[in-house]
Amino acid sequence: MKEHMISQFIDDELGLDEKIEFVEEIHRDEAFTNEAREFLLLEKTLRSEVVEAVPEVSVPFARRVLFFSLLRPVNLAFMTMAAALVILTAALVSQHQETVAHPVTSHRFVLYEPGASSVEIAGNFTGWERVSMNRVGEIGYWELNLDLSRGEHRFVYLLEGDERILDPTVLLRERDDFDGENSVLFIGESA
């Protein structure tokens, strides 16, 4: 039974000796040749494109955030151009369920940790690099102002270098790509 060699040929599963055998069989047996051709044509149908468009997936790291830090409005003309670009980009990416970020706004992160000797913050807006927070006097508060684009942001505080702390004022939390949870902050129009 050499028929299954046709499938092996189609699937690139023939060894060299089997290839020799296959070629010789094709040369010797016209019915086998026709059979092979028929299965190859069938395979073209089976392997053709299935759908018109492949959907995006929303796994945590697949969410792409586009930053437009260069689009800070410096004059009216630039503002108009920036707005047009943002609208155009939003229209282009909305069908893919991506998060579109907008021009930046300053956001103040505040955490009450009187016992800590060091507090850092790491988030998508820092490229997940740690940034030290500033102690506010001796009252136990830590703060940091950061420029954030409008849209969703994920972050976590780090105490003493390694203890992860979620922001108690941010209710939305999400399991991250790694081993824990992150706070999810939404910066909207009015922020």
């Binding site: 790291f61 790491a122 997940w128 690099e129 740690r130 976590v156 780090l158 390694d162 992860r164 991250d176 790509d177 790694f178 081993d179 824990g180």
Partner: peptide, 11 residues
């Protein structure tokens, strides 16, 4: 170093 950072290349 946070775990997330350590795994960044893997991710």
């Amino acid at each position: 170093m946070i775990k997330g950072k350590r795994s960044k290349d893997t991710m």
